[in-house]
Write a protein that binds this DNA or RNA. Structure first.
Length: 724
RNA sequence: GGACGGUUAGCUCAGCGGUAGAGCGCUGCAUUCACAUUGCAGAUGCCACAGGUUCAAAUCCUGUACCGUCCACCA
């Protein structure tokens, strides 16, 4: 007799089953046959343990992988970890701070080494977490974004793009975080509404408005709209004298259409070094650009007596001075406007002119192909890439259409160094992939300086699907690329998905994946975003300890449509634990019948308990088998169309409210009747087997465990998906 | 300033053209016979509002209200 314990105990099952799977080798597609089906795992950041968002992503990906494996595909799910340059450096610097250390007191090498060790530890922790989630990914292909093979590929891409003229270095204005001392992409900044005073000052014959008097020291251009009738008597290029903060200056009139006639007085002075719009105006008219604020947010000598002051500290003092000079006209106290902040630390962004490397998004390729942006948009038009979470497609297109060049250099230490040297003598830019070049190829000087910057982490992860496969073996790239699905959170649609599509087309002329499935954010039960500072972060491993992996997985999938955010309620997980137990007890009931139990214990006649469809003898039999058939069909269709939650709901309903509530109850009577016994047992057995298969992608542990009690020779994870 | 989404049972959410659904909660009954991590039965909904299309609308269209999100950012 096979006897099951009275209740399902996930803690005794999960590790054991995972070890069996690992040992089986079926996570590795080299041990499978069929047409490839590939998902590249979005590599978790190596700076923190897994959160529930990861659990959701991993669950969805594992469901897809397990389903397709059972459909006979050669499935590859490739795991990895991201060094997550800026993010990790921020986390690590905070850690240093707590320990009373600072990167500014360490050498770059010391810092890198310490950060490396930190990341290696976390990497291990998050890999263990992925295993506990039941992820059937191929660990033999596990990849880290700082693996030497990956860096090599990233460098080659950089060189190729440079040679193709897509990558350039420019000293234009960028978003500068004075705390982190690095430039940031637009995406890495956020806006916040602030109410601040808005000042009107006399500037020669004009009145100008500003919220930032501290930037105004060097202002010697006064700009107005060419069509503004109020100012027709001033001509472009006119010089006039004005008394200003630190004495008289000569101002030049500039006419530019960027000025909004409706705003303020319609006249402004500009600070090209610290404002993107002013910078553009200055470029258009070839005006002088003077730096007023240093990279730490302090005023430079041009500020005279205010030199060295932090800008916010200087602001009221400057206003006071202008007031004393009777140049202050009025103050609007409640001026509302948006200020730009660093998305990580919330520091005010101080635009600065710092040379950065950029990738052109809109330049046509030298081989005649369209720009990176246009190739990505074409991929959408031609359905080479489909965003299955439909509502994001418009958002995606809109963003792509308005995309700006991508700054890929960061002034941070943790990351892949930019493989470039500059000749101090002749100024030549030298690409040096292996750090081998010692003399300038142009002037032979040995006075070379390394580029101090590292790549934006998305520059390397943007090549991830291509690079991970190629890094492992060229044949992998041939077999598994393009991949089938990219499953990730909508919050990195622009950061990552967009870049992967562009980079992939650039490098291979193929899409990196056919479908993009975007899941929502997991929020807490009050719909708040989870964050460490709010203290509402749910640790998925803690939940697994209490309720089991299967319960967590089913709760995450159940009744949440793709792309919608999920408030994670513990009650729901608890309910799903009950469901796992229900399934367990169904199996217990089925196995309580001696014939089935003996068959399972010894391996009896397959004819007696056919795995193929049994014959129905009663209405109850007919009914359950028919409903089972419908269920197989509809849940298969749901899975094919990424409606995982609907599949989950239908299976749940069938198992509990059809199979258990109705059929098992009816079977109790039928089993008393010798004439009906055999067919009843067959129906019970067949239905249970089928349900286990359908449920396996969602709840892999409990189903595999029950399956093993039924003494099936093969593992459930590679059992054939039911037919209909 | 642009765009997108939401508004369904007490709470959290599915459903998106054909008799209103799930989890949790609630009420009553049952309980040595798979399961108290239970079963059975039940209550709870003008599916935001107003128009329209249709034989038929929670589901499609238009508009309104209120929530939410993304993008762009005017000195």
């Amino acid at each position: 007799m096979v006897e099951l314990e009275k209740a399902y105990d996930h803690s005794k099952v999960e590790d054991k089953i995972y070890a069996i799977w690992m040992k089986s080798g079926y996570f590795n597609p080299d041990n499978l046959s069929g047409e490839p089906y590939t998902i590249i795992m979005p590599p978790p950041n190596a700076n923190a343990p897994l959160h529930v968002g990861h659990a959701l992503g991993m669950t969805i990906e594992d469901i897809l992988i397990r389903y397709h494996r059972m459909r006979g595909r050669k499935t590859l799910w490739l795991p990895g970890t991201d060094h997550a340059g800026f993010e990790t450096q921020v986390v690590f610097e905070k850690k240093l701070e707590k320990e009373g250390k600072s990167r500014f007191k360490m050498s770059r090498e010391e810092f890198y080494k310490a950060c490396w060790d930190f990341v290696q530890q976390n990497k291990h922790i998050s890999e263990e977490g992925i295993k506990r989630l039941g992820a059937s990914c191929d660990w033999s292909r596990n990849t880290f974004t700082l693996d030497p093979e990956i860096i090599k590929i990233v460098y080659q891409t950089f060189k190729k793009m440079r040679n193709d003229g897509l990558i350039y270095r420019a000293g234009r204005i960028c978003n500068w975080c004075p705390k982190h001392q690095t430039g940031l992409a637009d995406l890495e900044t956020k806006y916040e509404e602030r109410t601040e005073p808005f000042y009107y000052f006399k500037y020669g014959p004009f009145t100008i408005g500003t919220s930032r008097p501290e930037t105004k020291f060097g202002d010697k251009y006064v700009v107005m709209h060419p069509k503004d009738k109020r100012y027709t008597k001033y001509k472009h290029g006119d010089k006039l004298n004005a008394e200003w903060i630190n004495g008289p200056i000569t101002a030049t009139v500039i006419k530019d259409e960027a000025v909004d006639m409706e705003f303020g007085t319609g006249v402004m002075t500009i600070t090209p070094a610290h404002d993107p719009i002013d910078f553009k105006i200055a470029q258009r008219h070839k005006l002088d650009i003077e730096t007023i604020i240093d990279k730490r947010g302090k005023l430079l000598p041009i500020a005279g007596e205010f030199e060295g002051m932090k800008i916010l500290e200087a602001r009221p003092k400057i206003v006071e001075k202008l007031k004393a000079k009777r140049l202050l006209e009025k103050i609007e106290e409640n001026y509302k406007h948006n200020v730009q902040l660093c998305y990580k630390c919330g520091s005010l962004i101080e635009p600065q002119i710092v040379p950065q490397w950029y990738i052109s998004m809109t330049k046509q390729l030298p081989d005649g192909r369209p720009s990176l942006r246009d190739m990505a948009l074409e991929a959408l038009d031609n359905k080479k890439v489909e965003i299955v979470t439909e509502k994001f497609e418009k958002i995606f297109r809109h963003w792509m259409e308005n995309i700006r060049d991508w700054p890929i250099s960061r002034q941070i230490w943790w990351g892949i160094p930019i493989p470039v040297k500059y000749c101090v003598d002749c100024g030549e830019t030298i690409i040096d992939l292996g750090d081998k070049i010692k003399n300038c190829p142009k002037c032979k000087s040995s006075n070379l300086e390394k580029d101090p910057d590292t790549f934006d982490t998305w520059f390397s992860s943007g090549q991830w699907p291509y690079a991970t496969l190629l890094a492992h073996a060229e044949k992998d790239l041939n077999s598994f690329f393009p991949t089938q699905v990219m499953e990730t959170g909508w919050d990195i649609l622009f950061f990552w998905v967009a870049r992967m599509i562009m980079m992939s087309y650039y490098l291979t002329n193929k899409p990196p994946f056919e479908k993009v499935y975007l899941h929502g954010l997991v929020r807490d039960k009050d719909k708040q975003k989870m964050s460490k500072s709010k203290g509402n972060v749910v640790d998925p491993l803690g939940v697994i300890d209490t309720y089991g992996t299967d319960a967590l997985r089913f709760a995450l999938i159940f009744s949440t449509a793709a792309g919608n955010d999920i408030p994670l309620a513990e009650d729901k997980i608890k309910g799903m634990k009950h469901f796992a137990n229900k399934l367990w007890n169904i199996a217990r009931f089925v196995l309580a019948n001696e014939e089935i139990s003996n068959f399972s214990a010894k391996g009896g006649s397959l004819r007696k308990f056919p795995i193929s469809k049994p014959g129905a003898k009663t209405d109850a039999d007919r009914d359950i088998l028919k409903k089972l058939d419908v269920l197989v069909k509809s849940s298969t269709e749901h899975l094919e169309n990424f409606r995982l939650h609907e599949a989950a709901q239908e299976i749940y309903h069938f198992v509990w409210h059809e199979f258990a509530d109705v059929y098992i109850e009816a079977s109790k009577k039928q089993l008393q009747d010798e004439k009906l016994k055999q067919s009843t047992l067959s129906t019970l057995y067949f239905t249970l087997l089928t349900v286990l298969k359908l449920l396996h992608p969602f709840m892999p542990f409990v189903t595999e465990e029950i399956w093993s009690k039924l003494n099936q020779k093969e593992l459930l994870m590679i059992a054939k998906w039911p037919q209909y």
